[in-house]
Design a protein around this nucleic acid. Sequence first.
DNA 1: GTGCGTACTTACCTTGAGGTCAGTGGGGGC
DNA 2: GCCCCCACTGACCTCAAGGTAAGTACGCAC
Lengths: 111, 111
Amino acid sequence: MEKQPYVCGLDAAVDVIDGKWKVLIIWALNHQRCRFGELKRLVPGVSEKVLTQQLRELEADGIVHRESYDVVPPKVEYSLTELGEELNTALRPLGAWGKGRMATLAETGRG
Amino acid sequence: MEKQPYVCGLDAAVDVIDGKWKVLIIWALNHQRCRFGELKRLVPGVSEKVLTQQLRELEADGIVHRESYDVVPPKVEYSLTELGEELNTALRPLGAWGKGRMATLAETGRG
DNA sequence: GTGCGTACTTACCTTGAGGTCAGTGGGGGC
DNA sequence: GCCCCCACTGACCTCAAGGTAAGTACGCAC
């Protein structure tokens, strides 16, 4: 969000998914809406601080929707917005490419 | 690279394009093969050190091809490999999404 | 012979993303 | 009564990516 004079659309997209865990968060959210704790479990390795932070950035970018229920104990649900779904769709070919690369890596690199 | 136990293909792909200038380098190389100096001009802001470094990583990942001519003054040409072209193709929907986002940003954010 | 240009390499420094850890408020289990 | 759990927040620290600047080898123009 700091870098408006983008060189190209790719640049703008990368800006949104830039962050160590964001694609994983988006990916996890694609399958279902999640509570904070669930997300933490689905994205192994994130600290709570960073999860919150990246979720906020994603929210600010209009990628995820945050629904807070005013109950005790606290309950918050995250889901992808329509924009987020579109991002996910745009991400799919890249995921497929990466999958192919993983396969190649498995064959040549370690197989 | 450093993170073989990928969560998903997306993860593997992001690993490859991770680096401040890599998508821009790939993008620039999509249009034509380039010499080091040209690339430096096409990707404004990169330092020589980092350009070299990211080019080497991209080369190690099989994305770009480096052709060195043993002449004086030195001449080196970079181009995308077939894998690189595939990556670029996979990147295209993301670029399109980003372009849409740029348009939205221009309308709502500053328009 | 001085300096420029090519394509780097190396040493050193800065910056900020991300990690760690402790704290918050209230209900429920023991 | 005490602690845990929920979903965070804030202070502090680390570390690696990236930036800066100088060096390298050689040919050419001047």
